[in-house]
Nucleic acid binder design. Structure first.
Length: 473
RNA sequence: GCCCCGUUCGUCUAGCCAGGCCUAGGACACAAGGUUUUCAUCCUUGCGACAGGGGUUCGAAUCCCCUACGGGGUGCCA
């Protein structure tokens, strides 16, 4: 498993794909971070490779244990498990950068021995190879030392070969003794046997630094895949999505009871697409179709309406055992149901709502009137319906028709109203919207007939009477 | 400023690598109708794009160049 390379210990793995997700746990998890994790995970699962989770916690100030837990929770919630890393271990650990100091020292020494590192201003710089010269730099507004280096070619699955030239020495160990990101990133990728680096496009300009470092260590660089950024909704602003933007944090979807598989599905669709027009995909279907080569090169804009739609599609497909528990918990959180609620009734109501709501979040307001007589009345619907001159009359007529029903089910209700319509030479439509409004206070909802059946005769009749009374008053 | 990456309907995208099958396909959103019956569901239809300009070619969304625009980077942040 271990071979000697450049006099250093480097693991050797078969020709298996090894990818890594290397977040810095600084609090909430950004949707872009989640997408990077997802694509790494998908690639590992697709190829039968391994996903390494490496924690970049070198910044002691910002990286708290709580933040780490939050990150791991987010990944678990999304269903993105890792093969090596925190909690599961692995043979190329430790998986926290804060614990890899000895390894970094070993590699730093090698660079020094090779004459590729030098100290300046208390920091240690990586020394580029090539002729040196001084030039005024407009960005820094100063003369800076540059190096005429040979260009490096970055092998990128998404973008093809990208050629770039690094022309300034860069810091690998800061004056406070901490190794820098570029340095630890490369050392870790070498020592962990990473074969493919899948990360955000914002790292593309850094990659020439990384390739220089790989070359200095005498190690072949991994294959890269730089994926495009997730951009802000243009209505909100410009640039990449920031953690302050609406919908940017996966915790938000967790808190709002979105389905993790829907979030995964939606995130996957940002910059990637299956070729066959089927967009609503399960995790397994995602793995089956996923291919790094199909990633979009341009940035994708986040669209919360589409996110809701994908969630809705997944909601509709949920089997009862997956749908009922979170649905009930959403209702009980809203104080609409408790242990004394009739379980059979609750189940029937929930089934009625499943095909209509796009999130568990929407459920309480959508179904409140099933559980309480104290529900809100939509003033717009009220105005629209009750301004009809015959409203009171129609409701009055409906009361005895429904009250006297032998069995109170959808078919009987329909027959009764139809009879009424025939008798008055009116359309059934003269009653339906009024009935819905009378029992629910709103203009929309589940299919009317089964809804009335589920509510039951007592609730329906008493609500009709109540409305009739208020209209007469 | 310099470097790198990009640019197909309002949005996500298919098509581009291997030029003709593209009067450019799908989805979200929006609009209009329909479902003798509401509706946030469902169905139908509509709206709607190859950034611009030059080439190459019998033929270009597809290949090349330029411009414009967008994104990223240019840190002893990651």
């Amino acid at each position: 498993m271990i071979r000697e390379a450049f006099g250093l210990t480097v693991p050797r793995f078969m020709s298996q794909v090894r990818v890594r997700f290397a977040p810095s746990p600084t609090g909430s998890t950004h949707i872009g971070t989640a997408r990077t994790a997802l694509f790494n995970w998908l690639y590992a699962r697709k190829t039968g490779g391994k996903l390494v989770l490496r924690i970049e916690d070198t910044d002691k100030e910002r990286n708290t244990d709580a933040a780490l837990q939050e990150l791991l929770n987010g990944l678990k919630w999304l269903g993105l498990n890792w093969d090596e890393g925190p909690e599961v271990g692995g043979e190329v650990g430790p998986y926290f950068q804060s614990q890899r100091g000895d390894i970094y020292q070993e590699y730093l020494q090698k660079l020094k021995d090779a004459g590729r590192a030098y100290e300046k201003d208390g920091a240690i710089f990586f020394k580029l190879e090539g002729e040196r010269y001084t030039e005024y730099d407009d960005y820094h507004k100063a003369d800076v030392e540059k190096v005429k280096t040979q260009p490096v070619v970055i092998e990128d699955i998404i973008r093809g070969n990208v050629t770039r030239r690094e022309e300034r020495d860069f810091v690998i160990v800061r004056s406070n003794g901490d190794p820098s990101f570029h340095f630890v990133n490369v050392v870790d990728d070498i020592t962990m046997g990473i074969t493919h680096v899948l990360r955000g496009e914002d790292h593309l300009p850094n990659t020439s630094k990384h390739v220089e470092l790989f070359k200095a260590f005498g190690v072949k660089p991994p294959v890269y895949a730089h994926m495009a950024m997730i951009l802000k909704d243009p209505k909100v602003g410009k640039g990449k999505m920031s953690k302050r933007d609406k919908g940017a944090l996966i915790e938000e979807y967790q808190n709002r009871d979105f389905l993790p598989e829907a979030v995964v599905n939606f995130i996957a669709l940002l910059g990637w697409s299956p070729k066959d027009d089927q967009e609503v995909l399960s995790i397994d279907e995602l793995i089956e179709r996923f291919d790094l080569k199909d990633l979009q090169k341009a940035g994708a804009r986040f669209d919360e309406k589409k996110m809701s739609h994908i969630n809705f599609e997944h909601m509709k497909r949920l089997p009862a055992d997956k749908y009922l528990p979170p649905a009930i918990s959403a209702l009980s959180k809203a104080g609409l149901v408790d242990d004394s609620t009739d379980q059979d009734y609750l189940k029937r109501v929930l089934e009625l709502c499943q095909q209509k709501i796009d999130s568990f979040e929407a459920l309480p307001s959508f179904s409140a009137y099933f559980f309480s007589d104290d529900y809100t009345v939509d003033p717009k619907t009220e105005k629209k319906l009750l301004k009809r001159a015959d409203a009171a009359e129609r409701i009055q007529e409906a009361i005895p028709a429904l009250e006297g029903l032998e069995t109170f089910d959808a078919a009987s209700i329909e027959t009764a109203i139809q009879a009424l319509a025939d008798e008055k030479e009116l359309k059934i439509f003269a009653w339906f919207p009024l009935l819905r409004f009378a029992v629910s206070g709103v203009g929309g909802g589940p299919d009317l007939l089964p809804m009335l059946e589920t509510l039951g005769r007592d609730r329906v009749v008493s609500r009709l009477k109540k409305l009739a009374a208020s209209l007469n008053a």
